[in-house]
Amino acid sequence: MLGKLIKYEFKFTAGKYGLMYLVLAAYTLFVIGLGLIHTSNPFVTGTIGFLTGIYFIVLFGVCVCATGYAVVRFYKTMVSDEGYLTHTLPAKVEHIILSKFLVAYVFQFLTIILAAASAMLVVSLKFDVNLFSAFHSAIEELSALGGNVVSVLIAFLVCALVSMAYQVLTYYVSIGVGQMLQGNKVVGCVLGYMIINTAVQVIVAVVSFGVSFIAGVSNGFENLESSISSVSGFTALLAVETVLMLVLAVVEYFVTSFCLKKKLNLN
């Protein structure tokens, strides 16, 4: 059943994401094409500058729209009219949520990859920046700080991937909790998100501070600043935050399942 749920979730959402990627690809090519125009006409150069500026809005807009679409789709198919179909399928609520999460996650990931590829193309071709040498010099600078640069890059990548999952599930749990509010579910979901997000930020901040503090105590508070700002210190902090977000994401998944199973309010 999970396989079928994933198949249809992909099928029903791919078109919308495809359209967003098409817009991004078209505008990326358009902006790169603008770089071929060489003129001293101030009106033309001004227009080119303006259109290039719009590119960054499109880039940002596609990322926001991809997230927004995932959130709106979850809301519509789980707790609004379309929920009547979703919740009468012979499938476990946990599987329904998991299928939506996995598909949203894959498209979020794809969106970031495509947005990054687009930005790199524009920066390297239009602004004539050698990305390879820029990346190389950044690595050298990091190496100069001491510690294992590869491990910090891996820690950063894993943290980013877990953070993405955690973000999607934070939206889901807000909807799961918010739909219980009688009368206005949308207000409930927005309020739910604000409260849950604030609470989670506080937890992450307290734990991060706690870890730094413990590290400081173990050092006798000598070289505290340098131990945190060093590459290995930063890697350790990233690892702690990653584990914390992973735990919170799992908790959010189960809370969402509980709310939509035991407290479903399709009223």
Binding site: F12, K76, D81, E82, G83, Y84, L85, T88, P90, A91
Partner: peptide, 15 residues
């Protein structure tokens, strides 16, 4: 039960 109950709600649930 959902595998053997066919439900027609009083509102439109079609996307």
């Amino acid at each position: 039960t959902k595998s053997y109950v066919s439900y027609l709600p009083d509102n439109n649930y079609l996307s």
